[in-house]
Structure formats: C-alpha cells, structure tokens
Write a protein that binds this DNA or RNA. Structure first.
Length: 430
DNA sequence: TCTGGGGTCCTAGGACCC
DNA sequence: TCTGGGGTCCTAGGACCC
C-alpha cells in the first residue's frame, strides 16, 4: 500500500466574464472591457487592459463611466446565460483530467490530483491550460498544492508572476523561494482572509502570508476564530477543507433584485415579490425540494441617506412544506402586506426559501388533501415543462404582472451567443 | 453581606466567498 | 439620475429548561 501526500489543483479562468465577452466579439480583443453587475451597477469583471487602466473591482459604474469611456473602455451588462454555458464547457474539459472534481464557482474548479505523483504535475497543468484554450477558447491558470488554501495561493502566484507561465506547483519550489514568495504577499490574498480580518491582523503585526503561516494556530483561534485557525493549518499543508465532489443540497434559495428605478406602491412591490418567489420556487423544484419557511425582504436605498430609510424582513413558517408557486405567492403576498409601509421609495425586494427538505419526505397529517396536492403538483410540472420549452416566464403567476416597471436595467447586454438560436454569432468567409 | 449553573435551541449579525 | 446577487459558516446572546 502506497500513500502519497494529497495534491489538489485549482483551475481558475482569467477575467472570466470579460474573457467570455471577448471570445465572441473579436473586435474587443485588445480593448479594455468591463462587465457590470445587475442593473448595470458595479464593475464585477475587468479585462487585463481595464485592470491596467486602474479600474477597481466593485466600483460603481456611474462614478467612472465618463472617464472610462474617454479611455475607450467597453462596458457590458452581465450576460449570465453566456457565462453559465461557457462555464459548463470548461468543466467538461477539466473532467477529462481527473475523476474527482469540485466545481467551486462559475469560474473555478478544484481537481483532485492525489495519486498523480508519477506525473510531472507542472507539465500536466500546462496541458490543462492548453486544452481549455484550444477546446473552449478561454485562458486559465493552475495552482497545485497539498491543500485547497495553498492551491488558491499557488493560483494567485500563477496569475501574478509571469515566471510561472500560468502554472504554479508549490511543492516544486525550493524552501527559500517559497518563503520569499510568502513574505512578499499580503495576508488578504489568502482565501478566507477579508478586509476586516486583514485590519485586525495588521494591528497585531501580521501582514504577510509567511507571518500568518508561522503563527500559533491555537493563539489564532483564541484571538479570531476556528475558521482562521483552519486557514493557518491549511497554509502549513494540513488539509482541513475536504474536496466536495458532490454538491451538497442547498439549505436556502434566494431571489432578489434592486429595482431599475424607485418603487412606491404596494401593487408594484407585490408584482416584484411574486416574480421573485416564482423564480425561487422554480429553482426549488429543479432541486427536487420543498420549503418549510418563506422570508420576504424589502428595503429603501441605503445609498441615499437623505431619504427616509426602512428595511424589514420577516420569515414565516409554512403549515406544511411546499414547492407550489401559487401557494408560495399567496404566502409571500400576505407577509409583504404586513411589512409594507406607504410613502417610502423602495429600492430592492427579495424572497428566501428555507427549511428545505426533499419533496415528499414529510409525513401526511390530518389537514392534507391528497387529491388537491396531486393536482397542484401536476400543474407545477406542466408549468416547468412549458417554460423550459418556450422560455422562462412564458407561463407565470398572474400576480407577477405584465408591466414590470420595477425590472432591472440591462442596457449594454451582449447577445446570448451560445444559448439562443436567434443570437448565434455569424462568421463571414470570403 | 451573600440570590446557581449548565445545557440546548433559536436568532441576528458578522465575516467570508465569488 | 446611476452603488449586485446568491450563498455558507460561525458566534454571541437571549429564552427556556431542569
């Protein structure tokens, strides 16, 4: 029996959303491109050229729009249909490199490479890059290390340090080089160390990865939390975070949106809430689950402190768990009525489904109506089938309305190049 | 003078991630 | 005029119980 040290690779797409946009619009190839959040609010992705111009992640677009456009920046609304499809293609390719893979986010996957020690893993990483580039057309970087936290860090080096040529195999570095890299890197580059913890660590004189790595884990737990303790152990090569090759079922499902412009009236809010809960219920059924509680949230615009502020969310348990859109719409509308206050400029509304459990798992009780339940169930199945075939929202609860003046802005949307026949890219040959 | 203590459950809020 | 959305985990503190 031969046991080897565990090895994990993190494969991360470079500037994922911006790269997807460039892939289908060759004229953008050398231009600075940014992708905006819903409502065209903030910058959520930047191409290399946009980063070089100093455009920060998360900055509100309206604050930089004028200047950015002068520099030739192309700004696009986020096109999730396109990104989700491209993400699936990348995962398909990566699946050919390992039997065990965790899809961590839309643009990142962890690959279990334990037992691949007989290979030159840095060369293997280069193969991954080349195949994704050739088969999908997107650039990726690869970090290889014994733990997930170290693999993330290795990926950071692979991206930032040209010497690695896109692949950093941490255990291949000699001790002096590794220590040098860790000493030159700020703690906030570590996975799990955000702004707040960075500030508190700085007060204690811990500013680089190397200093954090050599801190006493027990002491870290006492002064921070068990979460940061695990991070420190992971930085030392002790795996505390398992690879989740099978996605665990969701514990809650949310659907919320800021409005394109302020909403004042209960009727409009009710339409938005009905729309959101319909989306959430669809996701719920797709997962084969039922919800045991519904939360409704509404809020005014916190970025307008001169406006009267109001924010409220209320959760109600359901008498029996359900995935029925009409039932959920009804419940949510009743909750909304309770928390609505007139005369306020509402900015955002949303719902959350929680206490999720597998459909049909519950016990029948005295108040069940088996025939009515079966009829509702069939209705939902038909609705999902029709919407899948003819497009989202073809069949929907009347309460979700038609006008939808509350809907978000998406003024700079690129075509659904890969998921809509009508929007396929056209190639011209001559 | 002197007013228990420990366990569990729930919720709200904080922190992080992409 | 214009500042995203969807998720997880952990902790502290209150309520309640014996």
């Amino acid at each position: 029996m031969h046991t080897s040290t565990p090895t994990v690779a993190l494969v991360d797409c470079n500037n994922f959303y911006a790269s997807c946009e460039k892939l289908f619009a060759p004229k953008l190839a050398s231009r600075p491109v940014v992708v905006l959040s819903n409502n065209d609010g903030c910058v959520v992705a930047r191409s290399a050229e946009a980063k070089a111009l100093g455009i920060a992640m998360g900055v509100p677009w309206f604050k930089i729009a004028e200047q950015a456009l002068q520099h030739g920046v192309v700004a696009l609304s986020s096109n999730y249909a396109l990104y989700a499809d491209m993400s699936n293609r990348v995962v398909d390719v990566l699946s050919g490199f390992t039997p065990e893979l965790e899809v961590y986010s839309i643009d990142e996957s962890f690959l279990n490479l334990s037992g691949f020690a007989h290979l030159d893993l840095a060369a293997y990483g280069q193969q991954i890059r080349q195949r994704v580039a050739r088969w999908v057309g997107l650039p990726v970087c690869v970090g290889i290390a014994p733990t997930k936290t170290l693999a993330k860090l290795a990926n950071h080096f692979a991206k930032k340090r040209p010497i690695f040529d896109g692949v950093c195999h941490l255990d291949r570095l000699d001790e002096t080089t590794r220590k040098q890299l860790f000493s030159e890197t700020a703690v906030n580059e570590v996975w799990g160390v955000g702004g707040r913890i960075t500030a508190r660590l700085a007060e204690l004189g811990i500013e680089t990865v190397e200093v954090l790595r050599t801190a006493d884990p027990e002491w870290i737990r006492q002064h921070f939390s068990v979460v940061l303790e695990r991070t420190v152990r992971e930085l030392n090569g002790t795996a505390c975070l398992a690879l989740e090759t099978i996605a665990p079922p969701k514990k809650q499902i949310m659907a919320s949106r800021s409005f394109g412009s302020a909403v004042f009236h209960l009727i409009e809010l009710r339409e938005a809430i009905a729309h959101h809960i319909s989306r959430a219920a669809e996701k719920l059924r797709a997962q084969g689950a039922e919800a045991g509680a519904v939360t409704v949230m509404i809020r005014t615009n916190p970025f307008k402190p001169t406006d009267p502020q109001y924010q409220r969310s209320v959760t109600v348990p359901l008498a029996h768990p359900t995935a029925d859109t009409l039932e959920l719409v009804e419940t949510a509308a009743a909750v909304l009525k309770r928390i609505y206050r007139p005369g306020l400029a509402y900015h955002k509304a949303g719902v959350m489904l929680s206490e999720l459990q597998p459909a049909g798992a519950r016990q029948c009780d005295l108040f069940d109506h088996p025939t009515q339940d079966a009829r509702r169930h069939a209705t939902m199945q038909a609705m999902d089938a029709i919407n899948q075939k003819w497009g989202r929202g073809t069949l929907r609860a009347a309460a979700a309305g038609r006008a939808q003046g509350w809907q978000m802005r998406r003024e700079r949307l690129s075509p659904a190049y890969t998921t809509s026949w009508a929007e396929l890219p056209i190639a011209l040959a001559r």
